[in-house]
Amino acid sequence: MVSQTVEVVNTQGIHMRPAGVLVEEMKKFSDCTVMLKTADKSAKATAVMQIMAAGIKCGTKVEITADGVNEQAALDKAVELFKSGFGE
């Protein structure tokens, strides 16, 4: 398992659109479980409702963990998306 902590830069937090982008990308790593953890919540990176329900706001530190086939590539992709503000 690999992990890395990132900070949310999107001013509106991880709202619907970023959640959608993340789910779409993470579903490509079908044999790898990617999780998002904040101080008090966790969500599966392929579950759009869970991510939205976690209500992750701007400035929050999120620990991303990836476990399974191609875990480093999955983690790198997720980190890249967070850092780029999901292209916003």
Binding site: M16, R17, G20, V23, E24, T46, A47, V48
Partner: peptide, 16 residues
């Protein structure tokens, strides 16, 4: 328009 893509995703959401 992206909101409707996310609606499609919500329909396929595991927890739901």
């Amino acid at each position: 328009a992206q909101i409707f893509e996310i609606h499609m995703m919500m329909i396929e959401d595991e927890d739901y």
